[in-house]
């Protein structure tokens, strides 16, 4: 399981990285490499050139700006996992991070790498889709922002142009006083990719009524699914499990879940509903505790 031969470049700047990408259709960026390298070892990915951006200056950071938490693309996952700002302002991401791979893969894996790989079962992808993160890429001299909903376009396919480099993800930080989150996933072993995952974030008013909600389902479908209709239906309401369950089930009735060796489509549809209800319930309870 040795990769096919390739050239290796480590550009000093983003511009140089973009130029290298432009020069070779079969070049690939590598940051943490925790997904790409296994594919290369199996020769399922055969880049002719790896452009290593893991240590590109100025692309590893976490800071708050204008109601958003901006995370540089090559920020390591284990940095995000233990970051106080993320814990304080992005509780959903903080809750999901320990589920990303293993300790050892989080030490190398990056936020941008996970997003660019766009696996529907990846926790960071689900959180970005659920919260409606904004992703920024650089294509040569041009920078562009794109909504997560427009970025994830198919099974492990994104809107990222071949010559572009993802540089930043900005997650909205909810400013309401009573925000709670819930995250659940099911897999055979604790650290595997999820068969199904569900994320929820709600804000409550002082009476425990929902003022805002975001709900997402990962791994059931080729791209993460946002249950915006369900989120809408929660507005002004307290948590009513049976109502939520009905709404979630109705929302999932029309999806076409994936089926594979590990889980049937029926399982994914059914358990997506179960986990979504649990995540929403957790989010309500957590928000109420913050009251």
């Amino acid at each position: 399981m040795k990769p096919a031969p390739f050239e290796y470049s480590r550009p000093a700047s983003l511009d140089e990285a973009c130029a290298l990408l432009k020069a070779d259709d079969s070049a690939r960026l590598i940051a943490g490499g925790q997904t790409l390298v296994p594919l290369m070892a199996m020769r399922l990915a055969r880049p002719t050139r790896l452009i290593d951006i893991a240590r590109l200056p100025g692309l590893a950071y976490i800071h708050e700006q204008g109601g958003e938490i901006a995370i540089g693309a090559i920020t390591k996952q284990h940095v995000v996992e233990s970051d106080p700002l993320v814990r304080a302002k992005l509780p959903l991401l903080a809750m999901a991070m320990p589920h990303v791979g293993h300790t050892a893969t989080r030490a190398r894996g990056t936020v941008g790498g996970s997003l660019a790989n766009a696996d529907s079962a990846a926790e960071i992808v689900l959180v970005a889709a659920t919260l409606g993160a904004t992703l920024r890429w650089r294509d040569g001299g041009e920078a562009r922002d794109i909504a997560a909903a427009d970025f994830f376009v198919g099974p492990m396919v994104t809107a990222l142009p071949q010559t572009a480099c993802l540089v930043e993800a900005r997650f909205p930080a909810w400013s309401e006083p009573h925000v709670g989150v819930g995250f659940h996933e099911i897999n055979a072993r604790a650290s595997d990719f999820a068969f199904v995952s569900a994320a929820a974030q709600v804000a409550l008013d002082a009476e425990g009524r929902c003022t805002r909600a975001a709900i997402g389902i990962g791994a059931a479908t080729a791209i993460p699914l946002r249950l915006d209709g369900v989120a809408q239906s929660l507005h002004g309401a307290r948590f009513d499990e049976s109502k939520v369950r009905d709404a979630v089930k109705a929302a999932l009735a029309g999806i076409e879940p994936m089926a594979d060796l590990h889980a049937s489509a029926a399982y994914r549809r059914r358990v997506a509903a179960t986990l979504a209800v649990r995540a929403i319930g957790d989010a309500f309870r957590a928000a109420a505790r913050r009251s």
């Binding site: 099911i186 897999n187 055979a188 068969f195 590990h262 889980a263 049937s264 029926a266 059914r270 358990v271």
Partner: peptide, 11 residues
């Protein structure tokens, strides 16, 4: 006895 298969049987 795999998780999803057992889950489907129970359902």
């Amino acid at each position: 006895i795999k998780v999803a298969q057992l889950g489907d049987m129970i359902a």
